[in-house]
Nucleic acid binder design. Structure first.
Lengths: 275, 275
DNA sequence: AAGAACTGTGTCCACCGGACACTGTTTGCT
DNA sequence: AGCAAACAGTGTCCGGTGGACACAGTTCTT
């Protein structure tokens, strides 16, 4: 109880600034790492087993007092409140009244913790609605995904870079591909369409996070951008003019969505002959 | 010379795993931070001054031995070679044969360093070609942006989260908005179109990074995904079917681009009356 | 000449992820 | 019934990180 006693010791509400990415290509395991690079089972398959694997065993030692679910939930709680940068092993452990190292009995490392958090926070995709047309299905899908990003903005940070995707995330992909089944698109095209759609929702979520709720510190960034553009209006005339026009903010999601769906509709009607 | 002597001491080619985001909303300055939250000049305006200048002063002390350009270039060099996660103050300083703390004379913190790196690594957008139609301009723009992400994959990590955008980045935005001028779109619509386009290129770049060059460790992730999908083909039938189909990979960028441009063309022709 | 202003350095700190040896609990096997 | 193996949680340690701060050295202005 000595280490994780008071998780909020000194008065620093946020962790240290941290803008690093997840460009970990050589494997996080071991300082020496005698193995070549990616063995057949150790390096990235750990997270595969965690996300997909069967429960390891009903073995005999003492019963675990924790669970992957509780750990992931604690991480999500912290990330929701203070951002992904504030999620650390000690904070998560402290929230559960355990020591940091005990977490390593369940999770091989921080990357895997984040992967579990993503799976936990990503909701379920909309149910398969065979009655609806593909366009309605994809629209509902995009709106729901946007809500997910809105509820857990740190998902944007947690889902950059090469990583293993989990069952929940794959279920989202499945919904899109399934909705596009039987409209003349090839397999790769259906996948590409899914990426296109997800990418759009993602970038809109990022933009709306940059704008901030209203009086938030992020709002200053937007204001700063406005100031800067206005002050250099000679170098950026088109942007300055576009920003000067009044008009609906928060239309970005729908705008891009309509454009994408129009483009898909054009392709589909071209493929299926006519209407 | 004692601290930054041998930057590659123990044999760990990559830094520790790090998947944290940049969700720093309460200000990186000060452990106590007596100020409210975002004063009128201190917190985020530092990076604005850095990116948008002017050069602070031609003052009198000893002449600086470093420059923002050299520092940013060193950071870019490290990030290109080992990823953004490997960029640390000491590594950058070591590469320049300086001490870590000397960097803080030029750069208020790591976040600002990364911002400078982004500005330095982001190339220039294609020149304004008034002779070309909007569609050709946007196509060229997207291809060039994709190349930029391909040359510096860490840009994907460095450009997540709320941040101040720099002159180079704004120039990219300007090109898109300018290309769409005079085709019946409103200002916000032109901006939304830019976000749509940039988001697509971004997500494709992310996907192609996840796929990896060929025999890279990232390729294993893709293989793992294939295995997993195949093993759970009952739960993800549409994805399994789509992935089973042979067909062009690396078409994702063009596919989405064509869809988006088709969608924009539809809107434009609707707005301008006819073709 | 003198002093102000600035640059680069050394030392310190809190915190991070993680290794590892250790104690204590549980349980299956004999 | 006993016992040893297997497992859970802990404490301590380490290298690395971003950053604060006081200090020495250099240069320009007065």
């Amino acid at each position: 109880m000595s280490e994780a006693a008071n998780p909020a010791g000194p008065a620093n509400p946020a962790g240290p600034a941290d803008a690093t990415g997840a460009a970990d290509t050589t494997g996080p395991k071991g300082t020496v790492a005698p193995k070549g690079a990616v063995g057949p089972d150790d390096p990235a398959n750990a997270v595969v087993r965690l996300l997909w694997g069967p429960a390891p065993k009903p073995t005999r030692g003492p019963k675990p007092a924790l669970s992957l679910e509780r750990i992931a939930a604690a991480g999500v709680e912290i990330a929701d409140a203070e951002g992904l940068g504030a999620v650390s092993m000690q904070k998560v452990a402290g929230l559960l009244d355990f020591t940091k190292m005990s977490l390593y009995r369940y999770v091989p490392g921080k990357a895997e913790l984040v992967a579990l958090m993503v799976e936990s926070a990503a909701g379920d995709p909309p149910a398969a609605g065979p009655a609806l047309g593909w366009r309605e299905q994809l629209t509902a899908w995009a709106k729901l995904l946007a809500e997910s990003f809105d509820r857990h903005p740190w998902l944007l940070d947690a889902t950059v870079g090469p990583r293993v995707i989990g069952p929940r995330e794959l279920a989202w992909l499945e919904r899109v591909v399934a909705a596009l089944d039987g409209h003349g698109l090839t397999g790769p095209e259906r996948m590409d369409a899914a990426v296109l759609l997800a990418g759009h929702v993602r970038s809109i979520a990022e933009q709306s996070r940059a704008a901030g709720p209203d009086g938030s510190p992020e709002a200053d960034l937007l204001a700063a951008l406005g100031t800067v553009v206005h002050r250099h209006a000679d170098r950026y005339p088109a942007v300055a003019a576009a920003m000067a026009e009044p008009g609906g903010r928060d239309q970005a999601l729908d705008f891009g969505l309509e454009r994408i769906l129009d483009g898909l509709a054009a392709l589909i009607s071209r493929r299926t002959g006519a209407a």
